[in-house]
Computed example of a mutant assay.
Amino acid sequence: PQRMPEQSAVEAAFRYLPAEQRSGVGGDWFDVIPLSGARVALVVGDVVGHGIHAAATMGRLRAAVQTLADVDLAPDELLTRLDDLVLRLSAESGADTEPSGAEAAGDIGATCLYAVYDPVSRRCSMALAGHPPPAVVGPDGTAEFLDVPVGPPLGLGGLPFESMDVTLQEGSLLALYTDGLIHSGHRDLGDGLEALREALAVPTGTLDSLCDHVVHKLLPEGPADDAALLLVRPRALDARRVAVWDVEADPAEVARIRSNAGRALAEWGLEDAAFVTELVVSELVTNAIRYGDTPIQLRLIHDRGLICEVSDSSSTAPHLRRARVFDEGGRGLLLVAQLTERWGTRQTAAGKTIWCEQTLAAAGGPLLSLEGTAAI
């Protein structure tokens, strides 16, 4: 990406160094992708080889990751889907490869790191597909590599990936990178990791200056292979901007929950959003009581927008349908979709969450804090 998307979960800086400087493109990629619930996805990937073939494959894989991230898959499941895609691309490219080709287009392989960070709980879930481990710089300035289970590179097929959850402390820093940054002709992988650890531990002030310092220390003569570096400083969403209520499976609960939501908006100074929010809360909570399973929970998050989430233990995903004139129901989600900026659903370990988000053009910016917050 040429610039970072607007989001509140992390502060980010990056450097991208293609091996072929003239073309300005390579087989490495990275992304910062806003997700529902104020969360963010962090991605770094590396396609085998460099040049135009690697860049073309990289573009397809990057688009696939963005699409799968929008579905809100867990990191291990997303890498499984991406592995299937690489297998298909390899099969298609292999059938069209000419024997005289300079690069064997059929030998498509890639590595990837996919992580999801939640600024409410400070939890980060991540999975690796043959990729170097991420590094964490603690509040005391010491750097270490996370012991994330390393799955197979993309394109092998049939082998599992495993996610790992970590809590990122206040004042910590997360470094994601590709092997072009740490591996060179005069340095093996172990020495490269140690050089990266030492470079990250040097206090430099801003993330941009730290990016420059790391690149200068590890690649003083420029990259021999494509290299990418993504540094992120996680933020915590102030607990005062999060409201949570448990909901009993009783239609009478809807009025109580709607009233609670209205009071929370008044405390946040968002009275102008009360009408739409109370209507959306009524629809989503009613649907959860009628069609979902207990336990049911409502969560409001005041971030850059106003996020409403209703969770229950049923894994059945809802879908929009057009109600007929004399139908007495079937308009709830359509109403939510029309009244809010965007909406969706994501699977959770305990069931599913239906969410929607309103824009708050007149509201102030999100109240963020780097102080430690309790998990909700």
Rank of each mutant, 00 (worst) to 15 (best):
L168F: 06
E170M: 07
E170K: 05
E170Y: 04
G171I: 06
S172A: 15
L173M: 09
L174M: 06
Y177C: 01
D179A: 09
D179F: 11
G180T: 06
H183F: 02
R187M: 04
D188W: 07
L189G: 01
L189C: 05
L189K: 03
D191Q: 13
G192D: 10
G192V: 07
E194C: 08
E194D: 12
A195F: 09
E198K: 14
E198A: 15
A199D: 04
L200F: 10
T204G: 12
G205W: 11
L207T: 12
S209Y: 08
L210I: 07
H213Y: 14
H213V: 09
V214A: 07
V214Q: 11
V215Q: 00
V215N: 03
H216E: 15
L218H: 03
L218E: 02
L219D: 08
E221F: 10
P223D: 14
D225S: 08
D226Y: 08
D226F: 08
A227N: 15
A228W: 08
L229K: 03
L230P: 08
L231H: 02
V232P: 04
R233D: 04
A236L: 02
A236M: 02
L237H: 07
D238P: 06
D238Q: 12
D246P: 00
V247K: 01
E248Y: 09
A249C: 12
A249P: 14
D250W: 06
D250H: 11
A252H: 05
A252E: 14
E253W: 02
A255W: 09
S259C: 09
N260P: 06
N260Q: 14
G262T: 09
R263T: 15
G269F: 06
L270H: 07
L270G: 13
A273P: 08
A273R: 10
V276Q: 11
T277M: 04
E278V: 10
L279W: 10
V280Y: 06
N287R: 11
N287A: 12
I289V: 07
R290K: 00
P295T: 12
P295K: 01
L298G: 01
L298E: 03
L300D: 03
L300C: 00
H302W: 02
R304C: 09
G305C: 05
L306K: 11
L306T: 13
I307H: 14
C308S: 03
E309G: 03
E309A: 06
S311C: 04
S311R: 01
